[in-house]
Structures are given as C-alpha cells and as structure tokens.
Nucleic acid binder design. Sequence first.
DNA 1: AGGCCAGTTGCAAACGATTTGCATTTGCAA
DNA 2: TTGCAAATGCAAATCGTTTGCAACTGGCCT
Lengths: 152, 152
Amino acid sequence: MAAKGNKNDVSLQAEGRDYETELQSAGVRITRPRQVILTILKEMNDHPDAMEIFKRAVRVDESISLATVYRTMKLLEQLGAVHRHSFEGGPARFENADGDHHDHLIDLDTGKVIEFHSESIERLQQQIADELGYDIEHHRLELYGRKRKKKN
Amino acid sequence: MAAKGNKNDVSLQAEGRDYETELQSAGVRITRPRQVILTILKEMNDHPDAMEIFKRAVRVDESISLATVYRTMKLLEQLGAVHRHSFEGGPARFENADGDHHDHLIDLDTGKVIEFHSESIERLQQQIADELGYDIEHHRLELYGRKRKKKN
DNA sequence: AGGCCAGTTGCAAACGATTTGCATTTGCAA
DNA sequence: TTGCAAATGCAAATCGTTTGCAACTGGCCT
Ligand SMILES: [Mn+2]
Ligand SMILES: [Mn+2]
Ligand SMILES: [Zn+2]
Ligand SMILES: [Zn+2]
C-alpha cells in the first residue's frame, strides 16, 4: 500500500489554482491579510460565512479585520475563486470555487449542507433557457428538507 | 369576438382563495391595513418587494406603515398566501401563492422575472432527495441569464 | 348602542449583515 | 531606499427588516 504513488497523491490537493499568482497578474497586491485568507481558502472545503472566515483568519493573524474579509471575499468572487451562496435565513456563505459544479440540499434541522449534482437537471435548465431565448449566466438550485423519517 | 363567454372570463380572476375569511377563521382580526393589503394581493401578478407593496398600499390608504406591510407579509407567508423570494441582489420579493408551482429565470439586464415549470426537473429533484434520504420541504431554482444574442 | 380589552398599529429605535470614508500603513516598482 | 497608489483597520453609514411601546381599534359581550 506504500509504493506506486498513484495520482491521488496529487489530485487530492491538486485541482487548486494558484490564486496568489493569479491575483498578482491581475494587478492586485499580495498583502498579509490576503495571504492569510488565501491560505484559509485553500483548506476550505465547507461553506463558512464571513464571520467564520474572519475567526479562522484571526487565529493566524490577530490584526485582520472583518471589513477586509468582506473586501477580500468580494475580490475573490470577482476573480472566480469563490462562490457566494445565500441560503435561506442566514448570512452569505462562501465556498472554494475549485471543485466541479454542484448544487445543494440544506438540512432544515441541522443546517448541514449536502452537495449533489445532476447532469440531467443541468441539461434541462439549459433546454428551458434555450426555449425562452436566454443564455444562462449562472443558476441556483437549493433543496430544503429533512431526513426522511424511518420506514423504507 | 364578443359572444360566447369562454371560461377565461372567470379563470383569469378565479384561482383565488378568500384570505379575508381564512384570516378570520385563523383567529386574526380583519383590520383596515390588512384589507388594503389583501386587495393588493388579489390583483398582484408580479413579484414586488415590501417597499413596492407599501407604495401600492399608500395609494389606497395614506396612513399605512411599512412596518405593517412587513408584518402582514410575514403573516400571509405563514398562512401560505404568499411566497417570499430572495433573488440575487435586491430585497425580498413576494408573490401571490395562488398559481401553480413554478420556478424563475431572472433577466440580468432588465431584472425581468420569467416564470417556468419543468415537471422533469421537479421529478429529478425528488429522486435526488430520495437517494440522499431526505424529504424536500421546498426548493428554489433560479436561472440568471440574458437574452440570447442574435443568430438562430 | 356602548364598553371592554387583547390584538394591531404607527413610529422610531434597534438590528444584523455588509459597505464605506478616511487617516494610516504597506507592497512593490523604480 | 524611496515614493506613492493600493490596501488596511476602524468606526460610522447603509440597507432591509424587525421590534418595543404607547396609542388605537375590531368585534364579542353586555
Ligand atoms: Mn458546495
Ligand atoms: Mn413567480
Ligand atoms: Zn446546478
Ligand atoms: Zn420548482
């Protein structure tokens, strides 16, 4: 089980673009707060809100401000590095835009966010937009539900 | 083109439940502000936000307050009389819950809201939730796009 | 018809999330 | 190194929505 470095060695971490460099060539300065937030982004595999990202950032650099988190998230969003979600109820949540496209099912009892993807649905959406004479820029599909009660 | 009162004469206005009565039997008082807002609701076939509803209400009764609009919309939402949407960007928008279920395509250039319905998509959503072991309470599907540019 | 009183209102202040003005700091090109 | 536009932290502002509270009704009960 040790030898033969299979492609997972890389692909687990891979997938990731080098935002630091991308930012740079986008004519944006690599500041300390941005380094910190980019690091957090890299190991982000959930859907934290600004306050949560702020907390994670403060753990690394005491002096970071919430305003900068907001500013940076907006920047990263424009850069396509993160996606912003507005699930029912709470504040906006962000997620690393690295992975493949997917939609979400939110557990109304626990708040847990479950990801799923349906190529058929994506296709149907396209088809509908086509028929209406539209090009889809992006879409949002959220299912809100609760764990099926027993039986079956 | 005049004779033969086809069923549209009715169905255009029909569909509507009598919320005034429903409210009453729900042990809620029929106040002047509520009458006004219910009237507005009845002829509402778009997706206005609270401020817009407030404006329409003021046209009828000068003394209505925005707070009451919010309170009443919440009430009507709980009653199932209206649906609340949170399209990207703007404030919450409401719509009469009378019609059949549908989802929305928002024109990013004009803000126009286009309604559509896909039984296939609805079915697939169910199926996905099933597989994940969930019962869907409700869902939200929004397509954001722009009118297809020329050709075809 | 009149009264009672909990439900409802208008108002303004409070709220939570996000943005912004500004003086100060800092990245980084020259 | 220095210079300076870009970025930051802070606090105040903004936006949509909610809420406390005193004044005001709707509608059941005499
Ligand atoms: Mn996700
Ligand atoms: Mn609609
Ligand atoms: Zn999707
Ligand atoms: Zn639907």
